[in-house]
Design a protein around this nucleic acid. Structure first.
Length: 358
RNA sequence: CCAGGGGUGGCGGAGCGGCCAAUCGCACCUGACUGUAAAUCAGGCGGGUUUACCCUGCGUAAGUUCGAAUCUUACCCCCUGGA
C-alpha cells in the first residue's frame, strides 16, 4: 500500500519521515550526520528562505540543494502555515486577503513588506528547486466556526487551482516533462468538520495533484492527536497519490498514521526535543512503545550506558549518557548534534520496517 | 592587638522593625513542545503531600518591642587595612 516517490530521476521509499530543515539546516547537524541517521528527505520552508538567504541568492547559487550540499529529497512547504500561525500570535505581522498573504519580514537587516500570491509562492519554490512543492493553503484556525472553516476551504481550493496553473506554466517554460518535473501537493483543510474536509478533498482532487496533505490542526478538545479525524481524512485522499501528514508527529502518531496509509511525514519534534534535552528511548511506557529521558538530569551524570539500549545510532555507538549529560550542562553544541542525530535515527526506525515490506 | 567591613536557604547575592518562608541569578527537581519567532517555555525548590493554616528558620546566645533576618549586648567565625 505504500509507494515509492519517483522524482527527478531519484527514488525514495515511503513511508518517509523528513525532518524540518526550515531555514535550510537541521540545526547542529550536517549532511553527513543526517545520512548517518538514515534521513533521506528534508522539509524547507518557503517563507523562511524568502527572508534568508532570499530568492536572489537561491537563484544565483542554483537552488537549495546546491546551497546545502544535499542531493536527496527536498520538500518545500508553502509558508502558509507559518504566516497563519504568526499572524494568529500577532496580528501586526501580516494580513491574509483573498488574493494572497501580506506580511513583513526582516530581510538582511531591514524590514520589508511582502505580498505572496499563489503564483508567487510557486515561482519561489521553483527557485528553491525542491522535489515536492506545496500549494499555498489557507490554514483553518483551531476551533474555527462554520463560516471560518468554509472560508478556509474555499480559499484553499481557489489558491490551489492558481498554484497548479502556475506550476504547469513553470514546468512548460523550463522545459520539464513528467520525468524531470517536481511534484506538486495540495493541502486539505476544513478543521475538524468532516463534511468540510470531504469537500476540500474533493475539490482538490478534482484539480489534480501528485499528493495531498493533511492540513490544519488535527487535535481534539483534550489536546490529543485526533486519530479518528486523521484516519477519515486519509480515506478522502486518492489512494494512488501520496498522502502527506504535515507536521505529524510524535512517534506514536507516526506509527498510527502509517497504518492509515500516510506516506510522508515531517515534524519539528525530534530535532526540537533533542535541543530541549528530551531523547527517545525504546522502552515502553504506559500505552506507548517508546519513552524518553531528559538527558541533562543529574541521574545520568555518571551513567555509562548509551542513550537508548541497542540503538545503532552514531551517538549511542560512541558516547555515553554521562558524556552527553556533561555536554548539555556545559552548553556545548556537540550535545545538540549528538542528541539530534539520536532522535532522528530513532524516527528513521519508525518508518524503516514498513519500507522494508515494499 | 588596633581600626573597618561582614556572616541570609545547595551556592552567589537582595532585604535592614510588620506586606518575609524571605526579591533575584545559578544549581537542582517536574513537565511541555506536533507543516520551528523554540539551545525555548511553564511550574516547583525548609517541613507538615494542595489551599488555608501550623511548625522550624536569616552565625550562636540573651535582650528591647504587640511584633525582629532587620534594633541592642555578649560570644564565635570570616575578610580588608595597620601595628
Amino acid at each position: 500500500m505504500h509507494k515509492i516517490i519517483k522524482v527527478k530521476g531519484e527514488e525514495y521509499k515511503t513511508p518517509i519521515f523528513c525532518p524540518d530543515a526550515t531555514r535550510g539546516v537541521i540545526r547542529s547537524a550536517d549532511q553527513k550526520d543526517l545520512l548517518d541517521a538514515n534521513v533521506n528527505g528534508l522539509v524547507v520552508n518557503t517563507y523562511h528562505l524568502l527572508s534568508q538567504p532570499g530568492i536572489e541568492v537561491l537563484k544565483s547559487v542554483g537552488g537549495i540543494k546546491k546551497l546545502m550540499s544535499w542531493d536527496k529529497l527536498i520538500i518545500s512547504d508553502s509558508g502558509g502555515f507559518q504566516i497563519f500561525s504568526l499572524i494568529h500570535k500577532n496580528k501586526s505581522l501580516g494580513k491574509i486577503t483573498e488574493d494572497g498573504v501580506k506580511f513583513y519580514l526582516n530581510t538582511k537587516g531591514e524590514k520589508k513588506k511582502y505580498f505572496i500570491t499563489p503564483e508567487e509562492c510557486i515561482k519561489i519554490q521553483f527557485e528553491i528547486g525542491s522535489d515536492i512543492m506545496i500549494a499555498l493553503d489557507y490554514f483553518t484556525p483551531y476551533k474555527a466556526d462554520k463560516w471560518e472553516t468554509q472560508k478556509s476551504v474555499e480559499t484553499t481550493t481557489a489558491w490551489a487551482k492558481r498554484c497548479k496553473e502556475e506550476f504547469q506554466r513553470q514546468c512548460e517554460s523550463r522545459g520539464m516533462n513528467d520525468g524531470t518535473r517536481p511534484l506538486l501537493f495540495a493541502v486539505i483543510q476544513g478543521g475538524n468538520d468532516l463534511e468540510m474536509r470531504q469537500r476540500s478533498a474533493d475539490e482538490l482532487t478534482e484539480i489534480g495533484f501528485d499528493g495531498y496533505g493533511l492540513g490544519g490542526w488535527t487535535f481534539d478538545d483534550e489536546g490529543k492527536f485526533d486519530l479518528k479525524l486523521v484516519e477519515q481524512i486519509a480515506k478522502m485522499m486518492p489512494d494512488d497519490k501520496f498522502k502527506y501528514a504535515l507536521g505529524v508527529g510524535n512517534p506514536q502518531n507516526i506509527i498510527d498514521c502509517i497504518s492509515y496509509g500516510y506516506d510522508i511525514f515531517d515534524c519539528v519534534l525530534p530535532t526540537r526535543d533533542a535541543r530541549h534535552q528530551r531523547l527517545y528511548i525504546m522502552e515502553p511506557k504506559g500505552d506507548e512503545f517508546y519513552s524518553y529521558i531528559y538527558i541533562s538530569r543529574s541521574i545520568y551524570a555518571n551513567d555509562n550506558a548509551p542513550i537508548s539500549k541497542n540503538c545503532e545510532c552514531y551517538a549511542c555507538k560512541n558516547y555515553s549518557r554521562a558524556y552527553i549529560n556533561h555536554l548539555f550542562k556545559i552548553g556545548d553544541s556537540l550535545a545538540f548534534r549528538l542528541a539530534t542525530i539520536h532522535n532522528l535515527f530513532f524516527y528513521s526506525q519508525l518508518t524503516l520496517k514498513t519500507q522494508q515490506e515494499l
